[in-house]
Design a protein around this nucleic acid. Structure first.
Lengths: 210, 210
DNA sequence: AGCCGCATAGGGGAATCCCCTTATAGTTTG
DNA sequence: CAAACTATAAGGGGATTCCCCTATGCGGCT
């Protein structure tokens, strides 16, 4: 029985390329998602062994999606794909229950190994980020976490992507007033008072691409 | 005789995914490059029919590399890959002699078509950017690296810094309504309709720090 | 001379943002 | 268990954004 995979990346072309790679290795890609919410939804449906998640995705980024997955689909193990190796989110990723962390500027065999290793219940980290992991753990005590809750971060990401509060609400399946509440509270927490600064904050935090 | 291709993208994983896709379609990938200089060098060596170039690459970005190619390897036709639907990129790309322009959030068949069409000597543009191309050709005489006027850029910067239109107006010593006019016109020019996207644009253009 | 882009300025209106308040229910933590 | 935090929802209201529209004066180009 082949290893079953859900594949999430917002670039269709990249996604199909990865799919082609994985299928060549006899993995079974049971579903593709172009955003975090889809990735979670499809994982709930298909119960794959592995979810390969790009970090920068609309609606839910890969880390938040991984956190969701560890709640709703404990069987599914998340492997994150990322472009940047100076990623300060490695810590959060590990905290979110991610089992593998693969850099996009590694060779394909790296992802293959990651999938095999993770599906055996082990961890996998791309070469070159071990240092970053150590860094992350070292500064664990004085880590500059942003004080936001998961929900607030979701709302923030959608706002920064250019969605209105109303759009964000319907995308998250909550009331407009609830979304407004989240938005207001996160702005209070961050001591930010306009959308513009909010967006710059989100860009700094790599919640969205500039 | 298969169509011979040089493939350039700084993310190895993405590159190998694309290669897998292309080889499935019986194209022959004769070389891979992880930056623009390599792409040019390898094209000089292998004289491929097509060079598939990611736009964002180290040393030489895809557009500059395409310009080099049109000088040194006239036979090789450049196809650009990009994430963003940025109008001014398209303009620069066409000026650089690019024959195809494919968005990463298009399906793989789009790239396949692009390669086939371009190798036949035609142009190929991903659906959804034709409008931008028309725009680009319409204003062919002046080169809008950034299509904004000085005043519009000033307003944009202040907006992106978190100032309200009113604040921007008083900082520039003009009427609120004038500032609003500038703001509206620059948003029209950029085809942007919310503050958030405006801020991300300003960050990309390095008008403000994220 | 006439057209065009640019900066200036304003009217008006619908939608959205920003911020205040209150309230309930569930979870986590001390 | 109580306290704290979180997610949910809602009412209200002033400020701002977003997008129409018109209009004037200035400089440059053909």
């Amino acid at each position: 029985m082949p290893i079953r995979i859900v594949l999430a990346d917002d670039h269709v072309l990249v996604r199909q390329g990865l799919r082609s790679l994985l299928e060549r290795e006899k993995f079974q890609v049971v579903a593709e998602a172009s955003d975090g919410q889809d990735a979670v939804r499809l994982s709930e449906t298909h119960h794959p062994d592995i979810a390969v998640l790009d970090i920068s995705m609309p609606t839910l980024n890969g880390i938040v999606a991984a956190r969701e997955l560890s709640r709703c689909c404990a069987k599914t193990k998340a492997i994150l794909l990322t472009q940047h190796e100076e990623d300060q989110y490695i810590y959060e990723a590990l905290e979110a229950g991610v089992k593998g962390y693969v850099l996009k500027n590694q060779v394909a065999s790296d992802l293959i190994h990651a999938i095999q290793q993770v599906s055996r219940g082990e961890f996998y980290l791309s070469p070159g980020i071990s240092r970053a992991v150590v860094e992350a753990y070292r500064s664990k005590s004085d880590r500059p976490v942003d004080p936001l809750t998961v929900r607030e971060r979701q709302v923030l990401q959608l706002i920064a992507e250019g969605k209105s509060t109303k759009d964000a609400a319907s995308l998250l399946g909550i009331s407009v007033k609830t979304a407004e509440s989240h938005r207001m509270r996160l702005m209070q927490k961050l001591d930010i008072h306009e959308t513009a600064s909010l967006v710059r904050y989100a860009v700094r935090r790599r919640l969205v691409e500039p």
